[in-house]
Write a protein that binds this DNA or RNA. Sequence first.
DNA 1: TTAGGGTTAG
Length: 459
Amino acid sequence: MPHRDVVSATAAIGALTRRGRHRDALAMFSRVLADGVAPNEFTFGTVLRSATVLRAPRVGAQLHACAAKLGLCSNVFVGSALLDHYAKMGAMREAQGALEDTREPNVVSNTALIAGLLKNGMFDEADRLFRRMPERNLISWNAMIGGCSQAGLSEDAVNLFLEMCREGVTPNESTFPCVLTSVANAGALGVGRSVHASAIKFLGKLDVYVGNSLVSFYARCGSLEESVLAFKRMKQKNVVSWNALICGYAQNGKGEEALNAYKTMRATGLKPNNVTLLGLLFGCNHAGLVDEGYALFKAAEREQPGILKPEHYACVVDLLSRAKRFDDAKKFLEDLPFEPGIGFWKALIGGCQIHWNRELAESVAERIHALDPKDTSSYILLSNVYSAAGSWQSVSRIRREIKEKGLKRITGCSWIEVQDKVHVFFNGDCRHPQSEEICAMLGACLYTREDDQHEQSTE
DNA sequence: TTAGGGTTAG
């Protein structure tokens, strides 16, 4: 039945958008136009959302042109929706243009722009706008915190959260997942525990998003007990909750536990997704469960080929080469349904390093150099293979090559939190005030461990 | 009828 008036047409389109039927919403919009009904600012607000979710920039541009023809672009609803659409498509210039066309921009327009700026890596601009905008609400704070958290600006995200609380703005269920992801990234267990406590204080009941972030946060900070406890306390669990648990086990080297959790998850009737499989493969990898991992991959290939991504294939290469199954790994690489990127060869050379496979390491390093002559990691790995095999001449040749080609290695770092302070250490870093004591203690630990291993092997 | 903010893997 055709819609005669714009109000009922907009309501119908809005209902489709809310139900996630975005294609149908766009189709209905076209029909409404064909019926000769002129859309209003609310109609554009709704359909633009559908175009954004579908990531359809061409549809967005058509809608923009249509709104312009009707003289609606100065309206703040249309302006904000256009702004949000362009920002999410990564077209920041068009987003700014939409804001300039808006006659009276409000807190929504500014928040949409902030979110877009952060998504496109423009932190300083976003922060400047946030500081000077005339009105800020909870959603603006969440946009800043969430944007920083997703951009990896963990410290900024946590500081913003603290600032927000100081200003008396009450965080909601959207605030906490972002903050918890950030404290997890920073490895700040103590800070995260306080955030957990404040979530209980402000929210009372924790929803599935907050619960999932807690499970992941505790596991990523190495506290598996608290992670499992947070998981058990969740009233409602979805596939993301199970993924958080499985990945937590995997990251902490508990491959068997990850597999058991997966079995329980299947028993509840939930289907795994790509993240579940990745977590499982990762867990098997680190626990040396080669056959189990390979079997899971094969099962996914048969039952859910749609979830397989290059990362999963790379994990299998890693799994096989770590287990010294180089022939299987090479065969697997040859049979890949796509052209392997540099990461695949790095996974293979990693195994060569563990098992001192000098010949294969050399040929793989050649391949990596062909793909990316500036890549340092393969040089380092190759030189490690040589030094493990005792060919010091080759080691010094590689080191010379690295120097001559002006390649720089990116220094890895680790960190630990002690009494709410995070201490960061780089490779060979002696700048910590207690550096000497730390090294002495590490030495003592390593010595004891080697002793243990020696005792075990002579038993 | 209406525009802006959330979780898991790498």
